[in-house]
């Protein structure tokens, strides 16, 4: 029994982190129809900034991390994506790859291949509860921060004017613009918000394991992106749930599989992904009402 509780706690914690990454990806996709593989680099830069500033006053270090990923998010849009608004989907997809590839090389160049330690929130990596179940502080923080931030985003999108405009743009940017919604401003907001989320993801990840490598963000992004598609990417809520589920399943399988099978963890996860895609191509959580309701 305590095993199951342990699995669930770990699953919720990792699910929360992936859900945050998934929101960041789904926000950009919603507004721009852009599948941004380079999203991972926003996480990576924030993690490196945490590493570099690990001897600063903590709030300043966290702030610097947020600033770096927001700046990079906006910069990538200005330099690359803005010019590709009308390009075929394959081109924009590969462009986000190319960007990710180049940035990864930059991280190698600047920070070396062996990784840096971002021990800013290391204090969280200690046991909070021990006994039948083990809970580290970072697990608690992941759950709390994840829930709080997701709620904050939900409130922001529902209650604020710019949030309302972002949802409208994500649903139908053409119509939104004819109502006076400024596309540039909405897109900028989406990139800023996705940058903030990336920084938070970086904080949570480095709190759990402080080693920052050049591919840190890419790994998370791949899983989160899978989650977004599995959940249903046309809708922020379903996309977020998808990210959560992928994180949850990953953590639970990681705990539950025996040592000899654990190495095949990603095979199990991706097999589940394929099954979901085949059985529910519109997404695991997409309502029948939502699919096909809108004309293209």
């Amino acid at each position: 029994m305590s095993n199951v509780i342990q699995y669930i706690i770990d699953g919720i914690a990792l699910g929360a982190v992936y859900a945050l990454a998934a929101v960041g990806i789904a926000l950009i996709f919603g507004v721009l129809r852009l599948v941004n593989f380079a999203y991972g680099e926003l996480i990576t830069i924030a993690a490196y900034v945490l590493a570099v500033t690990s001897n600063w006053w903590l709030p300043l270090s966290l702030l610097a991390a947020v600033a770096s990923s927001v700046a990079l998010a906006v910069l990538t849009d200005r330099v690359a994506f803005k010019r590709l608004r009308e390009a075929p989907p394959a081109t924009t997809l590969v462009a986000t790859f190319a960007l990710s590839f180049a940035l990864e090389a930059v991280w190698r160049l600047v920070f070396g291949v062996n990784g840096r330690s971002a021990d800013v929130l290391g204090a969280l990596n200690t046991t909070a509860i021990s006994g039948a179940i083990d809970v580290r502080w970072v697990t608690i923080v992941e759950v709390v921060v994840g829930a709080a931030l997701l709620s904050a985003i939900a409130i922001f999108l529902r209650r604020s004017t710019i949030g309302l405009q972002m949802r409208a743009a994500a649903s139908d940017i053409r119509t939104a613009r004819t109502l006076g919604v400024r596309a540039d401003r909405v897109i900028l907001s989406a990139f800023v918000l996705s940058g903030v989320l990336a920084a938070v993801v970086a904080m949570l990840l480095t709190a759990g394991s402080p080693l920052v490598t050049p591919t840190l963000g890419l790994e998370v992004t791949t899983f989160a992106l899978v989650g977004v598609v599995v959940g249903g990417m046309d809708n922020l809520v379903t996309a977020t749930l998808g990210g959560f589920v992928v994180g949850f399943v990953n953590a639970v399988l990681g705990d539950a599989l025996g040592a000899d099978l654990r190495v095949f963890l990603s095979s199990f996860t991706y097999l589940a992904v394929i099954l979901v895609l085949l059985l529910r191509p519109g997404g695991l959580f997409a309502s029948r009402r939502a699919t096909g309701a809108e004309r293209v």
């Binding site: 899978v226 598609v229 190495v263 095979s267 991706y270 394929i274 895609l277 085949l278």
Partner: peptide, 18 residues
Amino acid sequence: GLAAGIGTLAVLEITHNL
């Protein structure tokens, strides 16, 4: 579309893992 992209990515991951 994207589902095909993610589905084939899953195949790559499984192949590599195995």
